[in-house]
Design a protein around this nucleic acid. Structure first.
Lengths: 188, 188
DNA sequence: AAATTCATGTAATAAGTTACATGATTCC
DNA sequence: GGAATCATGTAACTTATTACATGAATTT
């Protein structure tokens, strides 16, 4: 499980509550590893049982108590073990490609609508990425420059992916519109 | 659920057993929507209950009976309804990007090892793709030309994605090796 | 002699989503 | 006055994975 290890990574920066972790996840890694709140709380409980974390509970009536989680040595060991472990195939599930796969049973116009929808989504994604660096400047003050670089690398990867998809989609749409059923990448 | 709809798509070609479907999935859509055997059988049962499929059971002792599934009208309707439904964000979970995200806490050499591992995986993926078109020629004989085109489009997408990842990874590795911490895509 | 193909299934487990619940304080 | 923030949690459900089980016939 990788959410576990993302959490270990965040807690390696500093002790935090589940609420804080949720915010950090949304803000930084959600574009390649989203997580809902209930999943984070469940995972934190499991990790505590595994003795990767300790909790300090600070009551603050009438709100629920803040449960500040902190890495144990065993948690830190696990984090660095995992950070060095080669990850096998990355999981990708693209429902829209299933649609394209069976696109032979649709009319050209229907397929083009599907492709154009994906194009819109990818362009929106690109816009979303371009706002991250500035927000980041504000929120992160004088954190480690090196941490910042690797964060921005993951953003850059997202941008590269989105750009590649956009140009692929544009070519495919154009080809189909012209009645030329050519593959943009393989040969011509 | 999209496995459901992939199955509807395959059964729209012709009636098949779960075993047949598993083979087709592995051969054609598994690179963007993998499915294990037990998942397929479970899904077929559910789909039968939903009246999207009917079964014809052909006993063949001592083997398990062949259960040949066939689309109902309601199943076909559901297929085409779904094929035209715009799909929202495609699910992508990239564990190795979590590693890169926390790469600031590793040494350059360790990060480079992670990146080079991904590079190897993507190059292998590319090799895998290049073998599909020929296999396909053999297996598919005189099926609809149009179906074939859209199948090959999904392969082409996979190739485009893999190529984009390869060149991104190459640039990042090079930059880090030179001690120049630059983002390949955003600016320079 | 060993591996693969055919053909089904179950059980246990893991991971993730959706929806609900509480309730004061602060911001717009 | 209404929305967002803080801060936790549970329950039901869905989706997917891993591992086990059977067993003849065919291919390597």
């Amino acid at each position: 499980m990788s959410l576990e290890h993302a959490i270990l990574g965040f807690l390696n920066y500093e002790p935090m509550t589940g609420y804080d972790i949720k915010k950090m996840v949304d803000f930084s890694v959600s574009h390649f590893w989203p997580a809902v709140q209930s999943q984070i709380y469940k995972t934190l409980n499991r990790m505590e049982k595994e003795a990767w974390l300790t909790v300090e509970t600070i009551s603050q009536d009438p709100r629920p108590p803040r449960k500040v989680y902190q890495l144990t040595q065993s948690g830190r060991d696990e984090l660095f073990r995992w950070l060095n472990e080669p990850q096998s195939a990355s999981e990708v599930r693209l429902a829209w490609l299933i649609q394209i796969f069976f696109g032979g049973r649709l009319e050209d116009g229907q397929v083009i609508a599907l492709l154009e929808h994906q194009l819109t989504l990818q362009r929106q994604r690109l816009k979303g990425f371009s706002s991250i660096p500035e927000e980041h400047q504000e929120n992160m003050k004088d954190d480690d420059e090196r941490d910042r670089f690797f964060w921005m690398l993951t953003v850059d990867f997202g941008v590269a992916q989105a750009l590649a998809q956009v140009s692929w989609l544009e070519k495919v749409i154009e080809n189909i519109k012209q009645g030329e059923y050519r593959l943009p990448t393989i040969q011509g």
